[in-house]
Simulated scan of single mutants.
Amino acid sequence: MIARLVLLALGPIFAFPAVAETYRSEQADFRLVELADDLESPWGMAFLPDGGILITEQAGQLRLYRGGDLSDPIPGTPDVEERGQGGLLDVAVDPDYAETGWIYLSLSARGEGGLGTQVWRGRIQDNRWIESELLFDMQRKTRIGRHFGSRFAFDPDGRLYFSIGDRGAMQRAQDPADEAGRIHRIERDGTVPSDNPYLDESGTPPTALTRGNRNAQGMATHPDTGVIWTHEHGPRGGDEVNVIRAGANYGWPEVTHGIDYSGAVISDRQSAPGFDDPVHVWVPSIAPSGMAFYSGAAFPEWQGDLFVGALRSRLLVRLELEGEQVIGEEWLLEREVGRIRDVRVGPDGFVYLLTESNDGRLLRLEPVS
């Protein structure tokens, strides 16, 4: 059993609203700095080469934080349907942004039958979104406002990965013809890679890379191996960290460590042949969201660790890894800053957090000198 190491706070030194200034963790002391507040339910962030940070707000606004200032919403972005867990969700910057200028957005949008996940790309010029292109549009839309997934990552070949949850209907994750409950992979122009695993299966969505994922809201590329990792929400218990393999089935809802919200049993199996097991499970649920591997220079003690935000438990989790095994877990900032929606490591080596609320905040973890 992995020991849980709870952070000891030293208490506030300077007065940032509801933020204690300095903390001691098991391996590295850090200072917590508030950069921006009054964000409206922020969901995702991405770093531009010049140090700016693009931030999505669930109601549909894309904003830019740069040099201490938070911009007004950038006009021209695609329309979203904000309902339940839907809205404007993740944002990513093209790996070759200096040459291409492309920025990617995931969101929930209305269409025939209801709502579905979409992926767009566009450029920002003169503080306006231009050249908008729809790269992916979920075909089977429903009126359910849950489990849109929507995290992004790029592999070393520059292909774009994104998640779609089961849309609140668990059996969709195992339906071969469905796009829900999966990790998808496309080229950056929206075309389908020739080595996607289900291209030869008639009626199967060609963009699908996996099956059996309940609702992945954390995705990151391992800095050494280039392999994509995700985490996903379980039901009542059973949040998972998974290593993504092309063609793998992660089991939902045929195998799970969780139970239904009603207390009913979903499956009596936690593992079974034909399904890939998670590398880590949380029972009870922490409601994970946002994920980043640490590979910066500011915190050498955290090299190779995996950071995960949590909504329900309102904390930041640090997982120590040995290869693809979790060998240690530390809980940081427990109930100190609220619901952590996204976690990123900046080009400066600092760890950045978004807290989800109507007055959400952009926070930064800096080393204590």
Rank of each mutant, 00 (worst) to 15 (best):
A287Y: 03
L311E: 01
V6C: 09
S295V: 00
T207K: 02
R335F: 00
R110W: 00
G290E: 07
Q325P: 00
A28Q: 08
L5C: 00
P176C: 06
A92H: 08
L316T: 07
A272I: 03
V241D: 04
Q174N: 02
A3C: 09
E356M: 05
G52Q: 15
L306D: 00
R167C: 00
I74H: 02
L39D: 03
I130A: 11
A36N: 13
G181S: 11
V308L: 15
F299D: 04
Y352M: 14
T355I: 09
L64G: 06
R167A: 01
P75L: 12
L8F: 07
G113Y: 07
L209N: 04
L70V: 15
N127T: 01
L10Y: 06
H222N: 15
S262Q: 05
H222V: 05
I266K: 13
T191L: 04
P347R: 10
E34G: 15
S267P: 05
D268L: 02
G360K: 13
G67I: 02
L8E: 09
E254L: 09
P347C: 03
A177S: 11
L89N: 07
A216S: 14
A36P: 10
A177H: 15
L105F: 10
Q325M: 03
G309C: 02
G122M: 13
P197Q: 10
G203Q: 08
V33H: 03
Q27K: 15
R339D: 06
G114Q: 00
W129S: 04
R339M: 07
E179F: 05
L333F: 03
F30M: 01
L105N: 04
E329I: 00
G226Q: 03
D195S: 09
F136C: 04
R188V: 06
G346I: 05
D50S: 13
R314W: 01
G86N: 12
G111K: 02
S132M: 14
H147Y: 04
P223L: 07
Q139I: 11
N242T: 05
P95T: 11
R269P: 12
F299L: 01
A15N: 14
L54A: 13
Q139S: 13
S163T: 15
E329H: 06
V119P: 07
S295T: 12
G328P: 04
Y352L: 14
L39H: 07
M1N: 05
S271I: 03
Q58N: 01
D126W: 05
Q270K: 13
D348M: 10
I259N: 06
D342G: 01
V192S: 03
R236W: 08
E254G: 00
T22G: 12
V326Q: 10
S262E: 11
P193W: 12
S357V: 03
N127M: 11
A18C: 10
Y161S: 07
G258Y: 05
G168F: 04
S289H: 03
D90S: 12
D260Y: 02
R236Q: 14
I259M: 10
P42H: 08
P49Y: 10
R312G: 08
Y294H: 06
R140Y: 09
A292G: 06
G251A: 09
I13E: 15
G101I: 07
